[in-house]
Design a protein around this nucleic acid. Structure first.
Lengths: 200, 200
DNA sequence: CATCTAAATGAACGCTCGTTAATATAGCGA
DNA sequence: TCGCTATATTAACGAGCGTTCATTTAGATG
């Protein structure tokens, strides 16, 4: 029998398993079985397990976060910084909580130190883009006198780092109770940040 | 031939391999070989690979961070908050950078989502103790009018989270150039935090 | 010195791993 | 309709895995 999208379905399933069992804990047979084919069929699409891993990485490397997190209506709110920060933090948190992004984040955390992952995966790199975007926005806000003048890159880091840590703390399970707890932490962080950067 | 400390040396070597290859990527044979014994000899000391893993976890669970990071001379400086924050941040960063602590941190990040690790490992739990200690200290400082009044637990999180993220970003390699880069980030964070909590 | 025991060895087990090769089959273009 | 190509299956490979077991050895105890 022939199937459609096999190549893509391999990638999806591989991400599922890699992000829970780790690269070396996941097996080709497991991945094949989960999409209803034999392990040898995998090799019609990828020449090795490592190639599947690298394909996942390059798929996520091409993704850009800005479009997913920053929108025009959001930017319009930058004149009301308190609301803006709150929305931005929530968006960021939710972005990292999207099913595939969550899986990739787990993979990043798991494989960033391994032989196979340490060349391609680093938390700094992963955060680089969003930090840059935030720095630009915060820089504009200082210039426009909406918040204190300060190093935009530092502001970006101080805004994003706690959000990122909260996200990684809740990367495992996520029932509605947990989500509320995380949302409260995000709110508290935003209020701290806002108090730190507001004009007196 | 007979060796001394075999049980302990197994644990050390296991931590080395687990923290780089992950639990399932490391093998009993590899661990045995690295300490100069055969794999079967391991089983005179631990009844399974899983037991070695759990022994590592319980070894670190018993460790207390407060004594390693907080000292009396450090607390004496709490009256000069800017210096105090700077020293505390450095101590925290250095603590997480101690060879064994670094290995454990990598293990934590790698295994917190896996079948074997997800019951025993969580970033929140790992940070819980230091957050509590910091909260007490910061609470005292607000009460003594050395810094702004604010939720001590929030202050502790805002202080520690960026330090922790910086640490995890530099958990892989660490040459002297990298260490200087990290130190600068820590300084920048401390200055942001200090500006956020200082009295006006 | 003889004995006991803890700790090592060497060989083997059943299993799973990633990968390959030979073969079958489905669907599309000529 | 025929044959080509992409995609699947079945079977097998060598290697490494965790673990067990019978045996040897070294060092402490009497």
């Amino acid at each position: 029998m022939k199937y459609a999208n096999t190549k893509e379905r391999i990638l999806n399933s591989a991400l599922d398993f890699f992000s829970v069992n780790g690269y070396s804990g996941a097996s080709i047979r497991q991945i094949a079985k989960s999409i209803g084919i034999r392990e040898s069929a995998i090799y019609n699409h990828y020449k090795s397990k490592e190639e599947i891993f690298l394909a996942i990485l390059s798929q996520f490397k091409d993704k850009t976060i800005s479009g997913e997190v920053i929108s025009d209506e959001l930017l319009d709110e930058a004149v009301y910084p308190e609301i803006f920060f709150s929305k931005l933090a929530k968006r960021l948190f939710d972005h990292w909580g999207k099913p595939d992004e969550k899986k990739f984040l787990r993979l990043l955390l798991m494989e960033q130190f391994t032989k196979i992952g340490n060349k391609e995966l680093s938390t700094s790199d992963y955060l680089k883009e969003i930090l840059k975007v935030c720095a630009v926005i915060f820089g504009e806000m200082s210039k426009n006198g909406v918040i204190k003048k300060s190093d935009p890159a530092l502001l970006a880091f101080e805004f994003c780092a706690p959000v990122f840590l909260i996200r990684t703390e809740y990367l495992a399970e996520e029932d509605s109770g947990i989500r509320r707890e995380a949302a409260e932490k995000i709110n508290a962080h935003v209020s701290f940040f806002w108090n730190a950067v507001r004009l007196k």
